[in-house]
Write a protein that binds this DNA or RNA. Structure first.
Lengths: 166, 166
DNA sequence: GAGCTTGGCTTTTAATTTGCAAGTCATAAG
DNA sequence: CTTATGACTTGCAAATTAAAAGCCAAGCTC
């Protein structure tokens, strides 16, 4: 993988460089759920153990996870992998993936849907929508523009989807 | 890639099955920016053309993009790749990736930051936070719980990050 | 009007990544 | 004493990705 332009100016591209390898998002999902141990990741994901080693090392190197000793086996110290702040900050990404997956894909076997709840009251947390503080209102997709100054000095609208009927 | 459990009960896992291959997120980012043509994707991403063929075909098959004819070259019809509704619904994922990338990674060369604006007024759109309609307030990470019924019948809190000082 | 370029691919072959199996080392369990 | 567990590492096969070349029709170049 000769990453021609590493560390591109686009933050989405940079996020994908760190998070876009196979297994990485699933490891971070499990870590967010509270999983910390090598063997638990291996068993839950069904990932090959050498791959898991490499992925965990990369995530530690990238600062999303950190190795915390939890037992001393004679000469060898056992570590668990805990989220750093950068790792914890992935929750909005995971939430967005979950919402998309729930809306646009179906499980092989019917399953109860995943839910996101407010601990205090137990009610559902609403899907986060873009919000304009200035206008004090939510803004939907077709009313937002993006600005990527390294490509274009002016804001551009998002591509409109083709209407359902062809 | 012997995907042992395809179409898992977890919507994050299902989203990753569709979106998690190399290049896919970047193709969808560019499509969201209005890119539609094979040659433009190829040139912008630096992806090998055979890979691009395969990825576009998979995205069309998965219903995120659709092929729309735009020219008839004698025997051959040229198509462009346009977003479907499912593809357009990826904006929150891209937004979340951009926010994370902006906060936790740095470009090789300093660059003006990417911005998300309200077309009507030109002001910034705030980062979407989880919101509890019932309590009428935003809910931060440590006050939310997730429920994944196929794993556990009770809601679980999200893992806390280790504090910065080791 | 012969030749070059463009757009969108497909095919072949090479490099890289992933997966599987086995090995290691030290403590714990039976 | 034997087996199991946890967290790896190493070696090799299988799958995925990349690089390169080829194709085909239209359009443009001189």
């Amino acid at each position: 993988m000769p990453r021609s332009t590493t560390k591109p100016p686009c933050p989405i591209g940079r996020a994908v460089e760190v998070l876009g390898e196979r297994w990485t998002l699933l490891i971070m999902r499990n870590a967010t759920r509270g999983m910390t141990r090598f063997e638990d990741f291996r068993a839950d994901l069904g990932i090959a153990d050498n791959m898991l080693s490499i992925r965990l090392a990369r995530l530690v190197g990238a600062g999303l996870l950190t190795r915390v000793p939890y037992r001393n086996d004679g000469g060898r110290t056992r570590h668990e992998y805990r989220l750093t702040q950068a790792g914890a900050d992935m929750t909005p990404i995971l939430r967005a993936l979950a919402d998309w997956g729930a809306q646009h894909t179906k499980p092989a076997e019917p399953a109860e849907p995943m839910q996101f709840l407010h601990q205090a009251c137990g009610n559902h947390l609403s899907t986060p929508a873009a919000y304009c503080e200035h206008c004090q209102q939510p803004v939907h997709r077709e009313d937002q523009v993006w600005l990527s100054p390294w490509r274009l000095r002016t804001p551009y609208p998002l591509a409109e989807p083709v209407p359902p009927g062809n």
